[in-house]
Design a protein around this nucleic acid. Structure first.
Lengths: 204, 204, 204, 204
DNA sequence: AATGAATGAGCCTTCATTCAT
DNA sequence: TATGAATGAAGGCTCATTCAT
């Protein structure tokens, strides 16, 4: 054990502060996803990062701040992932298909992170940011999309984009969640939802 | 607080177990809704119920059991509420409208309880029931409804009812949630979603 | 369940106070022996006796008093048992054999009670009786026996009866304990100890 | 108390884990001996050691483990003490005298520790070691001694060494205990028991 | 910057005892 | 006499955070 410690020592001492933060971030993400907020102690995170407990407080003022940072990053990452697949200027159907595929990909490659990213903000705020739910944000984005398409009059004029946007976001997430659980083909998911939403929006 | 205690004095001196349980239930519901699971201590619940904290353990083996009971009851209640408004034999549109109205009513009259009823089951299981998410259950019910309507051929045959059912449940919940937040007219919500879903389902 | 309660009700209501005490005694003995002092709650005793918890305090001022009564009775019983086998006027060897047999019998028929009867009195006193250890009392009794035999000059005069009495008591108990554990023949135990002690005492 | 704290201040500020453990050990020993297991709280031990109660759990997983460690150390210490006084190759009489003296010394210098070392193992096991009673172990050692001496034919061949070994151990302990209580001369104790046991063993 | 021993507020739970019925 | 719901002091233990090194 002493040997092992010594070996790491040299490697560790060469690390600068940013490296420690990166390690803490990764460790926090891993543990928050695996065990949830309450079951994860700052000590655990530091240990997982190969650092002393005290170091945690050199980088985060407290546990909550660490969790908040994790959530924010997860949301950013998920969002980036989805945005990057968005086909600019494409039709609604293609947009839906792209979003669904992106969500599915992400969930598959980052198991557990989505659940965390959607964590009830009640745990978070407590005088922090108002912290809109990620799903609500998605809803707003879809509302914008709907508004955009509406201008081309490809959409029934009687819809309220805000309501419909939230409905689309909710439909995508929940259908995606359950599709992931059951061995439903991803393809079927995309096909069904694309049809569902585009028909719903088309003018009568 | 003293006043409250005095008022209850006569009730407490009767020492009826069922009444204590009822008061604990109400207190637990109030606090779990207001503060969430972790921030609510058995002591707080007992105090809120005007009882000593030992009494809590006369009725529940531990804190988790109390929370589970609360969740189960909240779900039952919400479900009853919605079922009771369901128009048997009515068309899809009426069903959607009825469900939305019921959800809205409930959320308005029992603020915070819905959030609790949808609590992430991760906190719950721990060897208990597999505990399907309530939303997923709703999705299944909508899947059944879709299947039922499909027989009358009022629905496009190409849909997978399971997928579509979940999508509908997700759409209703999320749209309902946000409508509740913003001062959107309930009426607009019902109108929009009814149109949205029924159009989505109609055969091409 | 109601039926069962009713059936017991009539049987129970015919009981008078003394009967309740007897039932509590028996229940206390059973549980103290099986679980020890700390792991036995007054509630458990009352339940085992088929009585309500409150009834316990009609018969004992508190838990400790109940335990003390149990210990006292166990000691009395054990002592009676041994005394009743004592051969009055018999020689030392016969006395030893009788005592050993009696101890062995008792331990076999009342498993666990001996351990309790020898319970460290530290748990007990706390301003109660000085409560001499039972073993020390036995030692004194053997001291008396030794003194008695000494008068007939069948014993080396150089012994201090108090010391030797305690030694005999200790030897008998410990040898008896271990003999009981291993499958050593009781007969061998009696034979060995009888020889051991009587030789030890005989004049040189 | 303030004074004590000041005195320790310098020692405490060094924050050396081993020292804290040593102080906890000493404190635990003191309190377990003085008050017994149940009346000693981890908090008390920590306070006695001049430490916060959290520190207790840095060194022991729980209260029981601390007690077990204490018992084990006390037994080891007592055993070492006695073994170190054992006269290798000496005759039986000298062995007995040495053992008695050692027990007496120890009991005098470590009041209360012997009682603890002989604590009923019922409190201990609970899935731990089978935890043979220390007295039974002593009995076995005396059985070995008896067997050894028997080879030189200085002992009656009709004895079962196991039985006789336990008897000797029991006799020594109980006689020692009571001698310690009453103001009997230690010398008398040694003289009496040495004579008692050696006569008992000599061939007829 | 990094460490990890130390801290103590605070949590969940138990149980001997009381008392209105 | 008997009951059992109610009580709250007390206990064991955890964990976010501090701070001397």
């Amino acid at each position: 054990m002493t040997g092992q410690v010594l070996v790491m020592e040299s490697a560790r001492s060469s690390r600068r502060k940013p490296e420690s933060l990166a390690r803490l971030k990764a460790a926090a993400r891993k543990l928050f996803v695996e065990r949830g907020y309450d079951a994860t102690r700052p000590q655990d995170i530091a240990k997982e990062a190969g650092l002393g407990h005290g170091t945690f407080y050199l980088h985060y003022p407290d546990k909550r701040a660490c969790f908040l940072a994790f959530i924010a990053e997860a949301r950013r990452e998920l969002d980036d992932h989805i945005q990057s697949r968005r086909l600019q200027g494409a039709g609604l159907e293609q947009n839906i298909a792209a979003a669904l595929t992106a969500i599915g990909d992400y969930a598959e490659n980052h198991p557990g992170v989505m659940r965390a990213a959607f964590t009830d903000e009640r745990m978070i705020d407590a005088e922090g940011a108002p912290s809109r739910s990620l799903l609500a944000e998605w809803g707003e984005q879809w509302a914008d999309t709907v508004r955009g398409v509406a201008k081309t009059s490809a959409i029934s004029a009687s819809y309220d984009p805000d309501i419909v946007g939230q409905a689309i976001a909710g439909a995508l997430l929940q259908a995606g969640r359950e599709a992931h659980r059951s061995p439903l083909a991803r393809e079927a998911l995309v096909k069904n939802l694309t049809a569902f939403i585009s028909r719903a929006l088309k003018p009568a």
